[in-house]
């Protein structure tokens, strides 16, 4: 069990760009539109044009829950199940056709490209980590964010998650509903129960797959935050998963 503080959060999905819109959404939460990208007008146009949709979503939610100083000083943890799979798939098509690869596309296809670009934009020189874990990606990124907070002497960590639907080439393999969404949580590992509002507990979970109408973890988390729910169960693998609870402080 880990005790932690959740200091701030933000989220972005097409049509859901403000705290008010998320609070209204949380009254009847569902997976929404998948098309569209944040405008990220706070980024200079030259740089903005080079960012993928995932990178823009990451920059947007990071910006929405941090001041410039906080964005420069907080360690960064990023999680994404598929990340820049769109860019990778274009590269794979070029490989299949024996076409020369674009060096920029290649260096921007790596899993830590969005968080690397965020660190450059924000001039953030702190540790940065990039996590992937299939169905458990969101939950494992959250765990790693608390680990990084612990490694950085209890510093607040910016945990950003982003994903978008699989490209058409892989649609047949999709095992989760399509969604486009990014979330940011500012979390801090606590020194003890007195210092914490939440706990993250590794517990036995229902082995059955999630119901088809169940929200993906990032959206379920936003709904839980908006509705101030008691507990949140995140996707389990092999019969074990995370449960997030208010610690009753």
């Amino acid at each position: 069990m880990i005790e932690f503080e959740l200091e701030h959060w933000s989220a972005w999905a097409p049509g859901l760009e403000t705290r008010e819109s998320w609070l209204a959404w949380a009254r009847a939460p569902r997976i929404g539109a998948t098309d569209g990208a944040p405008e990220v007008r706070f980024i200079p146009a030259m740089t903005r044009r080079r960012l993928s949709r995932i990178a823009k979503m990451v920059a947007q939610v990071a910006h929405d829950c941090s001041s410039a100083d906080e964005l420069r000083e907080r360690p960064l943890v990023f999680a994404s199940r598929h990340c820049e799979i769109g860019t990778s798939t274009l590269i794979l098509r070029d490989i299949a056709a024996n076409l020369p690869l674009s060096p920029t596309a290649f260096s921007h296809s790596v899993h830590n490209a969005p968080v690397g670009q965020l660190s450059i934009l924000a001039q953030n020189r702190r540790p940065s980590v990039s996590v992937s874990a299939r169905h458990a990606t969101f939950a494992m990124g959250w765990l790693e964010a608390l680990s990084v907070s612990r490694r950085c002497n209890g510093s607040a960590v910016l945990y950003v998650y982003a994903d978008e639907p699989l490209p058409v080439e892989y649609r047949a393999f999709a095992d989760e509903p399509d969604f486009t969404c990014a979330t940011a949580l500012v979390v801090r590992a606590a020194r003890g129960a007195a210092d914490a509002s939440f706990t993250l507990r590794w517990s036995r979970a229902e082995p059955s797959p999630r119901a088809p109408d169940q929200l993906p973890d990032p959206l379920a988390t936003v709904a839980w935050l908006c509705s101030r729910g008691a507990q949140l169960d995140l996707a389990a693998t092999a019969g074990w998963g995370w449960r997030v609870e208010h610690s009753g402080r």
Binding site: H111, S130, V131, S132, T237
Partner: peptide, 26 residues
Amino acid sequence: LEHGGLAEFLADVCGARGPAFVISTA
């Protein structure tokens, strides 16, 4: 093709049931 597949695969073959994930920072 999923990076996370490596952790899930190893956890399955060795029988570990604790947290399992992949870090991909190049």
